[in-house]
């Protein structure tokens, strides 16, 4: 191979390597979604889930998949700062449980459909969007996962279903509650919801 050939090889390497962006965010989301789906599709477990007997298995996947503190911060927005440290620590697991239910219900409804992982878009060095589609015979639902890189792994901090950001939706609700109530009252409402 002559020098020109090597040059082009190098050029191609540098050019094409740059936008490739690891693909790590998508792989991370794919692994977790597939884990959840495998659990959901297990008929024995499905029956148990319906009875609400056991969710441990799925909860473990959630904790790997979601960045619960980041989720909470973004869902509370500016109100996060008005909560005391203790209230924040109480809020995070409560909100996670609410989201678990919501996400579980969404996935349960589509658990028999095909999930396609379309692409990932880099929004900043540590934030990416993974675009997926749930395809069935009658409809296609677009589900995008926003992921953030922390401590070396990519974790989900928002889910956008058909253009609707779940976190933004919760932010509007928490805002509505917190302009009328104190943080401790809000925690009480949240507790009643997830009990």
């Amino acid at each position: 191979m002559n020098k020109k050939g090597i040059f082009f090889l190098l050029l191609a390497y540098t050019l094409f390597n740059a936008p490739a962006y690891g693909g790590e965010p998508m792989e991370s989301v794919r692994t977790h979604v597939e884990k959840v789906l495998t659990i959901l599709r297990d008929p024995a477990l499905k029956a148990e889930l319906a009875k609400g007997v056991e969710q441990k298995k799925i909860q473990r996947v959630y904790q790997e998949m979601f960045d619960e503190v980041e989720l909470s911060k973004r869902a509370l927005g500016r109100h996060w700062n008005t909560l005391s440290r203790e209230e924040r620590k109480e809020f995070v697991p409560l909100f996670r449980r609410l989201l678990e239910q919501a996400y579980l219900d969404k996935l349960l409804a589509y658990s028999n459909e095909k999930v396609l992982f379309d692409k990932e878009i880099s929004l900043s060095p540590t934030i990416a969007e993974v675009r997926t589609r749930i395809v069935s015979s009658s409809q296609t639902v677009f589900v995008f996962y926003r992921v953030i890189q922390k401590k070396g792994s990519w974790k989900v901090y928002d889910i956008i279903v058909e253009n609707i950001s779940l976190i933004q939706n919760y932010r509007s609700q928490f805002n509505e509650i917190l302009v009328k109530n104190s943080p401790s009252q809000m925690l009480k409402i949240l507790k009643n919801k997830v009990k």
């Binding site: 609410l98 239910q101 919501a102 219900d105 058909e162 253009n163 609707i164 950001s165 933004q168 939706n169 919760y170 509007s172 609700q173 928490f174 509505e176 509650i177 409402i189 949240l190 919801k193």
Partner: peptide, 18 residues
């Protein structure tokens, strides 16, 4: 409704986002 703390606000925000 199960996933919302304030279903009215959730619906309004969802509609606007959609």
């Amino acid at each position: 409704k199960k996933a919302s703390l304030d279903p009215y606000t959730a619906m309004k925000n969802g509609y606007i986002q959609y």
